[in-house]
Design a protein around this nucleic acid. Structure first.
Lengths: 164, 164
DNA sequence: ACCTGCGCTGTGCAGACTGTCCAGCGAAAA
DNA sequence: TTTTCGCTGGACAGTCTGCACAGCGCAGGT
């Protein structure tokens, strides 16, 4: 029998299959997973523990759909920040619930954030709330129309498992 | 005793507390959750069933960290697409594992996608793979430096629960 | 004012799963 | 060769899940 794992970090084929399986059917639990994967229960348990300890799997929190919460509109805003006010802007944006995500990016101290709103009209309110803050020089908003590839990780997991 | 829910959709305060609790401690299960929330187990079970049926909670899949998989670099690419080739481009991007997410946005048939790579150097390879495709006229890439607000949903859930 | 529908409570039960431990085995590393 | 490490297969007690049922109180409709 091949020995799967070696030293260091990264994931092997079994890890990849386990993650993929859990992604497809999160409810199945360790025992059922071990049956599906054809390995002993203890193995699955050990793999899961290790994957979580390594930070590969952060957790199993509920995946909430903003649309079902009443926020069907998504937009991305590129922000230009006045020099030296980055920290204030970050704090401000973090306080806005409709800001789901914020990144600082290369460019000139710019930021990119993901917003949601109850409607296109409501988006105006959100944008006003976001950009109505000293330190934001300019904002460019792109409204999402379609989402051909929803946030995913499985293809990358499979590639990482292949690359051993 | 107040009657929590009414008709229609949306979430009430108990739903909000439940989601928040599960987000913080996903492993606790229905029974423990009912204890923490101070309600009957059947209530938590019913709420969870309903939230999933409504699509508010999509599932409890593993949250995988690309960085821990060996892809610590994140970037956003804005793509300009040649008229009429949108479908081909979507299919192409969907086939690239490093493309974690793809949106079509307002503008001129533009797209925005999230990429990851093994390093800044590797990012070049990924970008070449992404834009080396007939139909993509131009691409502007922004590399993520910091992520002051990681993808989150709890603040929005709490607001949605408050607005009843 | 009365009735109905609905959600929450508290309880019970059988079945299944979890956490944990252990001994043995085979392969890679020292 | 010897040691180390991961996987196997099995076992046990404790716990949780899925499901069901009767009672109760509130909101909305008759």
């Amino acid at each position: 029998m091949a020995k799967g794992r070696r030293a260091g970090m990264g994931i092997d084929a079994l890890d990849g299959r386990l993650i993929t399986l859990l992604d497809r059917e999160p409810r199945i639990g360790v025992l059922e997973a071990s049956r599906r994967l054809g390995v002993a229960r203890g193995t699955v348990q050990a793999r899961l523990d290790r994957l979580q300890a390594q930070g590969v799997i952060r957790g199993f929190g509920p995946q909430v759909d903003p649309a079902a919460l009443g926020y069907p509109v998504t937009a991305f805003a590129t922000l230009e920040i006045k020099q030296g006010l980055g920290a204030d802007v970050r704090a401000h944006l973090a306080s806005v619930p409709e800001v789901l995500e914020l990144h600082t990016t290369t460019g000139e101290g710019d930021m990119l954030c993901r917003l949601v709103a109850r409607s296109n009209g409501d988006l105006q309110r959100v944008i006003d709330k976001v950009v109505g803050f000293e330190g934001i020089v300019r904002a460019a908003t792109a409204i999402v129309m379609e989402n051909p590839v929803p946030l995913r990780i499985i293809p990358l997991v499979e590639q990482a498992a292949r690359d051993v």
